[in-house]
Nucleic acid binder design. Sequence first.
DNA 1: ACTAAAAGCTACTATTTCCCACTTTAGAGA
DNA 2: TCTCTAAAGTGGGAAATAGTAGCTTTTAGT
Lengths: 147, 147
Amino acid sequence: MFQGAAALSLDAKGRLTVPSRHRDALLENDSPPNLVVTAHPDGCLLLYPAKAWAPIRARVMGFPALDSRFSVWKRLLVGFAEEVEIDAAWRVLISPELRNFAKLDKPVMLVGQGSHFEIWSKDTWEKQLQQLTAQTELPPGMEDFAL
Amino acid sequence: MFQGAAALSLDAKGRLTVPSRHRDALLENDSPPNLVVTAHPDGCLLLYPAKAWAPIRARVMGFPALDSRFSVWKRLLVGFAEEVEIDAAWRVLISPELRNFAKLDKPVMLVGQGSHFEIWSKDTWEKQLQQLTAQTELPPGMEDFAL
DNA sequence: ACTAAAAGCTACTATTTCCCACTTTAGAGA
DNA sequence: TCTCTAAAGTGGGAAATAGTAGCTTTTAGT
């Protein structure tokens, strides 16, 4: 279970250090941890343990090939996916293509989402938050949500 | 049952002391008390006993993943959630990310909300109150509310 | 073989965490 | 009512650790 947000920074070579408090959770899944990074339409990247990614990838690959509503998702999720290694200092290298997609420069937010992490440029993340504050209507089925 | 508002202050390291009158209630739930802090769209933080938080988190995790109206909520509620420990002096440490989200500096309000607490920066809390005072129309279903 | 880029390593700095001490307040007993 | 005691709130310091940046080494490509 990954949860919690961490403000981090990419180094000059586009590498991102995994915060120490998440390392145990990654090792539980498999060790050494195999990870997959891919792109999300909201402008962030997704970081999955390989085992958790496999079934999702399988499902996306099964989308009807000629329906363009599906192919956009497939191009993004499968097309951008790459396996990344963790080095001795617990860093993952984000490729220039993915960095460019998510507009990542130094300051970055790593956000736990249960099965995976999202990686946001700090700017984009803050815009994302403002969107929620501005949002007036609740999505259907959430009206009775009690916090 | 947590109720009542308390004016408190964060110390230089971002720690918040739980007022003594709420300590018994926390110990009733489980001891030592396991707590979770997360973010709320209104700009405050939520402090839950772990047992009360679990079902909420479960529901949020079940939201449709590809519908962005829901994922914003998941990003906020799960993305910011972190388990906090209580030290020997009944203090909880609020991480820089959460402090930054809720714009917390020294003066803070801790507001009991039954199942949980809300943590507000004093400034934001006062703005919130003014907004309520200025509000003229009652939300639907509250017209017959008897105090 | 030389150059450039990427991977790895090392060292420094900032943060975190744990612990201790002091001040203040509340409550009980004389 | 005053004093003594215990508990609570507050602040601070030191040690450990995490994060970052810079430097070196290796590898690949020309």
